[in-house]
């Protein structure tokens, strides 16, 4: 290939940087899928421990049973979707790994395209999968992206609200009940602090996840605009040039 070396060097440097950022983003995406699958079980386990340590009774015990039962009902519903997303992300990870290997040997790559589209598969809303039967596919995707973007803020606020309810109506009253019963303050305090730190961390991860999704969706919007521009420019040019076309 007879490309100018400085231009090649710039592109290679840009690709290295892009791959580093993609890797960081990818780690987070994988972590989030794991977190979504196992995070609820972890909370369920802590609630059980809390019930045992604090010896909860009455309303608090009822709340605890709801907290324990919810993941048992939700996880099977989420399982298929999470499994599919995890599979796609694994495939994307392999593409990323191959691209990194090429860049590390100072070769230019294009596997980035495959990676980006695989991440789109994970992030875009679940819609009919068969592209053949879809009508107005671009409009459908655009509408879904717009709806998802609107949901982001309300979801973050809702999660924060749930966190507040959990603290205010369950953990703190549980702690007080335990102390009134003559339990060890230090033990319960440490347990509570641990749970609060984990819950807040989960909320921060969720916040970052939603912001990341929104950012990807904006990028997807930019990609659609790129495609529309391509279609507009080249459709009009091919109308002017009536000769070409497929010959089968």
């Amino acid at each position: 290939m007879s490309e100018p070396q400085p231009e090649r060097h710039d592109l290679l440097t840009g690709q290295k940087k892009t791959l580093r950022l993609m890797r960081r983003s990818h780690r987070f995406l994988m972590g989030h899928i794991f977190g979504a699958a196992f995070g609820m079980y972890l909370i369920m386990l802590w609630v059980i421990l809390f019930v045992v340590i604090a010896g909860l009774t009455g309303t608090l015990l009822l709340i605890a049973l709801v907290l324990i039962g919810t993941p048992i009902m939700i996880i099977p519903i989420q399982y298929k979707d999470l499994k599919q997303k995890y599979g796609i992300l694994q495939q994307a990870g392999q593409v990323l790994k191959d691209s990194e290997a090429l860049v590390d040997s100072n070769q230019l790559v294009t596997g980035l395209t495959s990676y980006v589209f695989l991440v789109f598969d994970v992030l875009r809303p679940s819609e009919p999968a068969d592209g053949v039967s879809e009508k107005n596919e671009i409009e459908d995707v655009r509408r879904n992206l717009s709806n998802t973007t609107r949901k982001v803020i309300s979801e973050i606020v809702f999660q924060a609200f749930l966190l507040f309810l959990l603290l205010n109506n369950f953990l703190i009253p549980g702690l007080l009940a335990f102390l009134e019963g003559g339990g060890s303050f230090l033990l319960m305090f440490l347990f509570l602090v641990f749970i609060v730190i984990v819950l807040i961390s989960r909320w921060i991860v969720f916040l970052y996840w939603r912001l990341l999704v929104r950012k990807w969706l904006r990028f997807y919007q930019g990609f659609i605009e790129w495609g529309e521009e391509l279609e507009r420019v080249f459709s009009s040019s091919s109308e002017d040039n009536s000769g070409g076309g497929a010959t089968w």
Partner: peptide, 17 residues
């Protein structure tokens, strides 16, 4: 670019773009 791309598997759905 000087290297052939990774041979990828298709995703579950694709827009025409």
């Amino acid at each position: 670019p000087t290297v052939r791309p990774h041979s990828w598997s298709p995703g579950p759905r694709r827009t025409k773009y």
